[in-house]
Design a protein around this nucleic acid. Structure first.
Lengths: 156, 156
DNA sequence: ATTGAAATATGTTCGTA
DNA sequence: TACGAACATATTTCAAT
């Protein structure tokens, strides 16, 4: 593992370890070790270094939104008034649990958010009652995800 | 846990367990058990049911893209020719490792994708050499994420 | 950086309530 | 559903290379 100004370098063994754990965070280290052909202790040490280097941000259980009744995902482009403070709007967006992602973006909008709703009715309520009323929001454009075809992390 | 036509219901204890594991997939069951005040075996049993019910889709290590040198995230709205087959375009998008998400959407575009690039140069190459050339793609609109302010899962 | 083995911690199963 | 105790696995540490 080497550091230059741009990026931390990881070798092939690190990649194999990470690929396995990116797919299943609870995969036993020894299983990975046997597959790769090095000891569990070596894997353990590499993981420690990868964490120290910040390559690993953490781990997550992934929840199936649809099974819990959240069936509508959408992207909302938000136009903010010139005068308004972006960070105030973001602070309000953070309070809305349906907002999963929020990006400052180049282009037409000031902000792009990804939201999860139970259904279209819920989405409409969210837009009208929670997002549009935020101070500084002048207009929104909504794109409903009819079907998500790809969902993955960076490929190592 | 009850099933109606819309959603699986989970109780407060399930939520506490899931909240912990959504934050850290490797958090020891016993630690969660002690915090909640039930036995490890009970947690274990509940997790098994949640998996059977499909509430848990899996678990992931989360990789820090920036640390690995991938510093530019962008959303690309893709216009497809009327005549073209959407699924052919998606098949090509799946082959591009920089594409992290891909959605069929309502609104202007046929498809919205989220991509990760090393830098703006890489993004430009990706658009010109990989995405624009896909059969059926007539035009694209790109929104660069200047800063991601929110990144989370559904809140239980 | 890697190893094997020891020590510790965690996950899993099962009989019972 | 939940429990505890017995059992099976996994993680972590460490001295040595």
């Amino acid at each position: 593992m080497k550091i230059n100004s741009l990026a931390i370098e990881i070798d092939g063994i690190d990649k194999e370890i990470l690929r396995d754990l990116m797919e299943d965070a609870r995969k036993p280290i020894l299983q990975i070790a046997n597959k790769i052909g090095i000891s569990g202790a070596a894997i353990h040490q590499r993981l420690r270094k990868l964490e120290e280097a910040g390559v690993i941000s953490g781990s997550k259980f992934v929840i199936n939104n649809k099974v819990l009744g959240y069936k509508t995902m959408a992207f909302v482009g938000i136009y903010l008034d010139k005068a308004s403070s972006n960070s105030d709007a973001v602070r309000e967006l953070k309070k809305i649990p349906e907002v999963l992602e929020c990006h400052y973006t180049t282009g037409n909008w000031s902000i792009l958010v990804k939201i999860i709703c139970r259904d279209n009715e819920h989405l409409m309520q969210l837009l009208n009652k929670k997002i549009q009323p935020i101070d500084g929001v002048s207009r929104t454009e909504t794109f409903i995800s009819l079907e998500q075809q790809i969902e993955r992390q960076i490929q190592l």
